[in-house]
Deep mutational scan, measured.
Amino acid sequence: PEEVRRLVEELYRKGVSPEQVKKILKKQGIDEREIEKVLRRIG
Rank of each mutant, 00 (worst) to 15 (best):
E9K: 09
K27T: 09
E2G: 09
Q28W: 12
R41L: 15
L7M: 11
E3T: 11
E10K: 12
S17Y: 06
K27F: 11
E10N: 09
K27Q: 11
G29W: 02
G15I: 01
L25G: 01
K27E: 12
V8M: 03
E32K: 04
G15C: 04
G43Y: 12
Q20F: 09
L7R: 09
E19N: 11
S17T: 10
V16M: 12
E34N: 04
K26R: 13
K22Q: 05
G29P: 01
Y12F: 13
L39A: 02
I30G: 01
E2K: 09
R41E: 15
K37F: 05
R33Y: 06
L39M: 08
K22Y: 15
R40P: 03
K26D: 03
V4R: 02
I24R: 06
Q28L: 12
Y12V: 12
R13P: 00
I24W: 07
E3D: 11
D31W: 03
R5E: 14
L25M: 04
G43T: 13
K37V: 06
R5Y: 15
K14F: 07
E3P: 07
D31K: 05
V38L: 12
D31R: 04
L39P: 01
R13W: 13
V8H: 01
E34R: 04
V38R: 01
Y12G: 02
V21G: 00
G29N: 05
I42T: 04
P18D: 08
L25E: 00
G43I: 15
V21P: 00
I24G: 01
I42D: 03
I30A: 03
R41I: 15
V38G: 02
D31M: 05
E19K: 10
R41Y: 15
V38F: 05
E34G: 02
E36H: 03
V16R: 12
E3Y: 11
P1D: 11
V21C: 04
E36K: 04
E34W: 05
K37Q: 09
V38W: 14
I35D: 00
E36G: 02
Q20M: 14
L39I: 07
I24S: 04
E9F: 12
G29H: 04
Q20D: 13
R33S: 10
E34D: 10
V21E: 00
E3W: 11
K27G: 12
G43N: 10
E2D: 13
V21F: 03
R6H: 07
V8Q: 00
V16W: 14
S17R: 10
V16L: 09
I42K: 05
Q20V: 10
L7E: 02
